[in-house]
Amino acid sequence: MQKRGLLFYFNIYRKILAQDLKSKMSYRADFIISTIGMIFTNISGFISFWIIFKNFPSIKGWGYYEMLFLYGFSLIALTPVQCFFDNNWNLRNHVYSGDFIKYCFRPINIFFYYMSEVFDIKGLGQFVFGSLVLGYAWNNINLGISITIIIKLIISLITASLFMIAIMNLAASTCFWLLNSGYIMVMVFRFKDYAKYPATIFNSGFKFIFTFIIPIAFIAYYPSLVFLRPDDIPVLTWLSPLIGILFFYISYLVWMKGAKSYSGTGS
């Protein structure tokens, strides 16, 4: 197979996306209700912080607005996995029923083609809500706006999103080897809810676990230090783009290995 440029894949993605959106639009009520449901989840997270901070002044030196910063940041960082990689959730059914074989016969990258098939619009509601929370926190912490800080923000958001995508790729790819492994995805997906807390609340053992084994501390905590604790940025924060890319690449390799070893159901 000859090498194809980014533009080629971009064009294909656009075409598949248009098809997907057209089919989604025929279920307009579902789209509206799902988006409202998504925003409900986010608002409830916001209310939880509000209630806690009505009773307590801070959490281990992290104030109300700093916690909201982490929350907003994590919501935005979790948008790509929701929007672009949602088809991971269907992988288990495709593999189980044998439908997955159709992806193996396309002359383009299987991973790319599989993920491009579904674009989950309700993730956009989360993106908007996350941006509002982040903006609100940003304003109250007086971070100011400059070109450098915006570039830093974009890079750290992209980095952070890679971690959750990689976690979900790995969780989904278990279904190539374990039958009906949906419960692993459900379990792992819940971990994202813990990304909004600063890793300093843990003792060193669990901090290690949430940094290197279940790397949810990279979804909001480490990247946010660039903005919230600029005088004391750990090495891991600087390394996080590299670790993120590496982690994503590993998850991609595992996913592809599973897809390549897939032998269908025989039908």
Partner: peptide, 26 residues
């Protein structure tokens, strides 16, 4: 036909307002 949306709304409301995530006294 929106099972996901309906269910997530219910879940969020019940979990928060039942005091399962934060005790109601707070």
């Amino acid at each position: 036909e929106s099972i996901w949306g309906i269910n997530i709304m219910k879940e969020v409301i019940v979990l928060l307002l039942s005091g399962a995530t934060i005790p109601i006294v707070f």
